[in-house]
Design a binder for these strands. Sequence first.
DNA 1: GATTTATGTCAACAGTCCTGACATATTTTA
DNA 2: TAAAATATGTCAGGACTGTTGACATAAATC
Lengths: 173, 173
Amino acid sequence: MSDNAPDKDAAIVFGAAQHEAGLDAAANEAIELMFFAYRDFTAVADRILEQHNLGRAHHRALYFVGTGRDVTVGHLLDTLNITKQSLARVLRRLIDLGLVVQEVGSEDRRQRLLRLSAEGDALLQELIDAQRHLLRSAFKEAGQERLEGFRKVMLAIMNEEDSARFNRRKRVR
Amino acid sequence: MSDNAPDKDAAIVFGAAQHEAGLDAAANEAIELMFFAYRDFTAVADRILEQHNLGRAHHRALYFVGTGRDVTVGHLLDTLNITKQSLARVLRRLIDLGLVVQEVGSEDRRQRLLRLSAEGDALLQELIDAQRHLLRSAFKEAGQERLEGFRKVMLAIMNEEDSARFNRRKRVR
DNA sequence: GATTTATGTCAACAGTCCTGACATATTTTA
DNA sequence: TAAAATATGTCAGGACTGTTGACATAAATC
């Protein structure tokens, strides 16, 4: 954690955010913070995906298949907010590569339950590790006591349905 | 700011982040926080862009042309991390629509200085307003005292070159 | 038995990104 | 001044991800 001159000056802007004008200035800066942070956050995964000739769409599908339980095609469509055709292309590739396997639903035989193969799981873990490493470093650099601020703001940015899901999840697990 | 049960439980995870395992859990959750927050953050702009038949690439170009000074094609290529051809297509459209105008560089006549027309500036302000509104609301909901935590973590996520630029900027302006 | 639901697939199109090659004008360098 | 480097523009062509709309199949539900 650095307490040098630039940081102090920067803090002025955010300290001033108690006022309306300061809030505007902070929000203006945050527009760029979102852009640059997200760009670098995805970049660490992109480098790995590139080695496997996969794109971000494959990453997202892999992620939600691997971290969910009894994920169906319909669930993925809802989560990813894309069309059936878009998902089909991505899923087909993952299945052909042997990273994702399908099972007929046990209760509803129309459903296809998706899960990762050992290879798929290995790739997903590699991707998660890379992004987790970046975030862990960031938390340590920023100071762990600032973690809560980061989390609360991110939850407030996203829609209520999703943020509620995060809070619910913590309660259940 | 809500202090109800889910938030308290969630705080356990982040409180535990003082320990290594807790840090990992927090980073794992943060992977999803980044995804959902960024998705909704871009969505508010996407709705506006759609009305003008423009995409995110146009948004980014518009943004950096409008918020920078004496922006050249080369600067944009560096900032956006895309190829000349990708940018050319986007820029061509913005210029044809009359949103961006070009001037021959005063010092280096090979350069094309880019700036927004009145229409381009109006559209950019509309986009900025939408995202600023979302972020302001998020800051108020999360509690303004958490703003600093958000900012520090975001700066730590991005590469040093970019975060340094943010700190430098605060000092100068 | 008819309807609805979950999934899969085909055709066709658009936006964004890429690579590599080549052209022009202008500046810098040897 | 001639040669090399730089800033920009453009062309061809390919990849990925997203869209719409239509149609098909199997299974569940009414």
